[in-house]
Nucleic acid binder design. Structure first.
Lengths: 223, 223, 223, 223
DNA sequence: GATGAATGAGTGTTCATTCAT
DNA sequence: AATGAATGAACACTCATTCAT
C-alpha cells in the first residue's frame, strides 16, 4: 500500500525553536549571501520543513531581519551599558572596546552579518535602512560617547569626532570583510592575525588621539 | 535593403561587442551584485540582444569572471614604476600613494571591482584566487617596498611589515566597501569625506611609524 | 483544574461543534467561494482549531458537501403545504409565492447556498446532482402545481409549463447571483431594488399568462 | 549522454499566437474557474511552456483581463453600431438583439466568462471592477438606448428604464448560469431550450412594454 | 475530545540558457 | 553574426491535512 519509506515519525515536536532556524539562517546567509540562500535549505539545516519556517517568520526578508536583531541589534544595549560602567582610562576603554567587539561579534558567526549587509545593501534598501537604523546609528552613538569621554576628561585632545569614529569603524569593517571574503581563500601563511591587527590599530589611533605622547603602545606599561 | 543615402548615423560599434558587454556587466554587477544582475539587462545596456551575449560568453559565470579579469589587469605595473621613481621622503611617498590610489582607483568605477570581489569571493573561489594572485600579492609587494624604503632610510623605525601593510590596506578597503554599499543608503549628513579620511589615516599611521615624533601631520603642523 | 467558583462564563457551546462549523463554513463559502475559503478561517470563525474541524469533517470537500446538504433540507415541504392552502386567485398566488420566496430565501443568508451551487456545480457534480434532486426537482414540481392551478381554474390560458416554470425561476436565480456577486461591487446608484424587480417580473409574467387582458398589473390598476 | 528522449525539436516558432493562449485560457477558466485553473495547464493546452505564457501576459490576472477584452468587451462596439443601424420596429429590434446575443455570446464559449465573473467577482474585486467598466456599463447603455428608441417612437409606453433593462438582462444572465452550472448536470430531458426560452421572455416583455396590446407574440409577421 | 506544530505537494512567477531563423 | 521566441528548472510562499500530545 505504501511502498515509500515509512516516513520519519513526524520529527521533533515541542517548540521547534525559532532559535534553531535563526542559527541556520545566519550560517547560510553568511556563507552564500541573502539572495543565494534558499529558505528550504535553511529549514533543512534546522531540521524542519519549509512550511515550518514560514510558521515562525512571515517571509525570507523578515527572517533576515530577525537574524540581525538576534545577533547584533539586540546586543548593543548590554554592551552600551557595560562600556558605560567601565572604570579606567579612556585609552584602556578604547582597547577594551575593540577587544570585546572582536570576542563578541568579530570572531563569532554574527560577524558574517555585517559582511552580508555590506555586500547586499544596494539590492535590499529596506534591509540596509533597517541595519542603518538598528546597528549603524546606535553603534555610532556608542563610539562617539566613548571618544567624548576621553575628550571630556582631558585624556584625548579635541577631536574631529566624525573622522575619529570612522577610524575606529574602519579596522573593524575591514577585518570582517577580509575574514569573510578573501581571507577564506588565502593560504595560511598569509592569514591576518585579527587581534594583533586590532591592537596595532589601537596603538596607532591612541597615539594620535592622546594628549600625552608618552602613551605607551602595547599592553605592558599601564604604569 | 536601405538605399537611403547617407548611411544611418548609428553605424556605431562594429566588432567592439565583447568590450561593451564587459563594460555593461561591470557596471551592473557592481551596482546589483552577481545574483541580482540579469543577463538580459546587461545585454540591453550593451545594445545587443540576450542571445548575442551568449555568443561571446558561454554563461553568466564566465561573463563575471571575464569582467573581473578584464578590469584587474596591468594598472599595477605602471604604478609600481612610478612609485619607484618617487623623489621625496617616505612619509610623502605614503601620502602620495594613498592619494593617487584614490584618484586612480578609489574614486573611479574600477573601485567597484574590489567591492565585487569582496562580496562574491566565497561564491567564486576560483576568482578569489585569481584576484589574490593578480592583485593582492603584487599590491602587497608594492606596499611592502614602500615601507621598506622608509625603514631602510631610517625615516621609519623598524616595523612589523605584515601589520603595517594591512594598516595601509584597511582604510582603502573600508572606503570602497562603504562607498559602494551602505554609503549609498546613508543620509547626506552622514556621508564620509574620503580624502579627509585618507589624510587622517595617513597622519595616524605615519605618526606611528616615523622615528621622529616631530613628523608634521597634515599640511601645516599645529605646533 | 479550574476550582475557581462560579464556572467561567464562556462555558458556551458544548457539543454544538459541527453546527457552528457548518454555519461558519456557509458564510465563508458564500462570501469567497470554495477554493478561496481557507479551512483555518472556518475553524477560527467557529471558535475552534483547525485540527478540530478535521475531527468532524474528513476533508474540505466533505465539509462543503455537508454545508450544502444541511442548508437545503426541508424548507420546501412546509412551503409546499402553505402554498397548497392558499386562498385567492392564482395570480395572487404567484405574486405571493415570489414575495414569500424573497422573504424566506432570497433576502436571507440561505440565498447564498444557491449562489454557491451555481458557482461550484461544475467542480462538484455530485453536489449538483444532489441539489438537482433535493431542490430543483421538488421546486419545479411546486411551481408547476401553482401554474397548473391557474390553468385548471381557467384563470390562466393553456401554458407551455416548461417554459413558464423557467420564467418564474429565471428572475429568482438572477436576483441571487446579482446580489451575491456583481451587486456587491456596484456603486449604490446602480443597485437593483429586488422587490420592485420581482413585482415587475410578476406583472409581465401574469399579463402574459392571464386569460383576461384586464388583469390589473400592480396593486392599484393604472386606470 | 542523453538517455532522455531526443527532446521535441523546440516546438513551433513564428508567433506562437497569444490567440491560442487566450483560447486555451477561456476554455479552462470557464471549465474550472479562475482560481482553480493553473497557468501551466493553460500553456500546455496552447501547446507552449509555462514560461512562454508569461512572455505574452505579465500575470494570470492580466491573462484573464485579456480574455475578457478579447471575447466580450471588444465586441460591444461593433454590436453597438449594428443595432444602431437596425431598420424595423423596436419590438423587432429587441427580439433581434436577444437572438444575436445568443448567437454571438450566449452559445459560444465566451458565455462562460460571464458565469466566471458572477462566480468569482467577490474574490477578485479588481476583475469585477474591470468587468463592470468594460462590459456592464457599456452593455447597460446599449440596452437603454434600445428601449429609449421604442419609447421615443411611441411604440413602447413610458418605461422605468432601470427596471426594464434588468428585465432584459435577467433572462440572459439566467441562461448563462444555467448553461454553465446546473445545466451541465441535468438529464437531457430536463434541458432548457435557450432560444425558445429567450423568445418566450421576449414575448412577455414586449407584451408588457408595447403600447398596442395587439402586438402579436410569436414570429407570425407583424402585419 | 481538542490542539496546534509540522508537513509537503502545489502555485505563480522569474530568468539563464537554447536554437531555428 | 545576431536575434528573440521558447524553454524549464528554480524559488518563495500557501494551505489542506496529519498526528503526538
Amino acid at each position: 500500500m505504501s511502498p515509500s519509506p515509512p516516513a520519519p515519525p513526524r520529527q521533533r515536536r515541542k517548540q521547534a525553536r525559532p532559535g534553531e532556524l535563526l542559527d541556520a539562517a545566519l550560517a547560510l546567509f553568511v556563507e552564500k549571501g541573502f539572495a543565494a540562500t534558499r529558505v528550504e535549505e535553511v529549514a533543512a539545516r534546522a531540521g524542519v520543513s519549509k512550511g515550518t519556517l514560514f510558521l515562525y517568520f512571515p517571509s525570507k526578508e523578515e527572517l533576515f531581519k530577525a537574524v540581525v536583531r538576534e545577533n547584533i541589534a539586540g546586543r548593543l544595549d548590554e554592551w552600551n551599558q557595560e562600556l558605560g560602567e567601565f572604570q579606567g582610562t579612556s585609552a584602556e576603554l578604547v582597547r577594551y572596546g575593540l577587544h570585546s567587539w572582536w570576542e563578541r561579534i568579530g570572531m563569532t558567526p554574527a560577524s558574517g552579518i555585517t559582511k552580508l549587509i555590506m555586500s547586499e545593501a544596494r539590492n535590499f534598501p529596506e534591509l540596509a535602512a533597517f541595519y542603518e537604523q538598528e546597528v549603524i546609528e546606535p553603534g555610532d552613538r556608542l563610539l562617539r560617547r566613548l571618544l567624548q569621554r576621553g575628550v571630556d576628561s582631558g585624556e584625548f585632545r579635541p577631536l574631529d569626532l566624525d573622522l575619529a569614529v570612522y577610524s575606529l569603524i574602519a579596522p573593524m569593517i575591514f577585518l570582517l570583510m577580509w575574514k569573510h571574503s578573501l581571507g577564506v581563500c588565502l593560504p595560511s601563511d598569509k592569514q591576518l592575525d585579527p587581534v594583533a591587527f586590532l591592537d596595532n590599530q589601537a596603538d596607532l589611533l591612541l597615539r594620535g588621539m592622546c594628549r600625552h605622547q608618552g602613551e605607551p603602545k602595547g599592553k605592558p606599561a599601564p604604569r
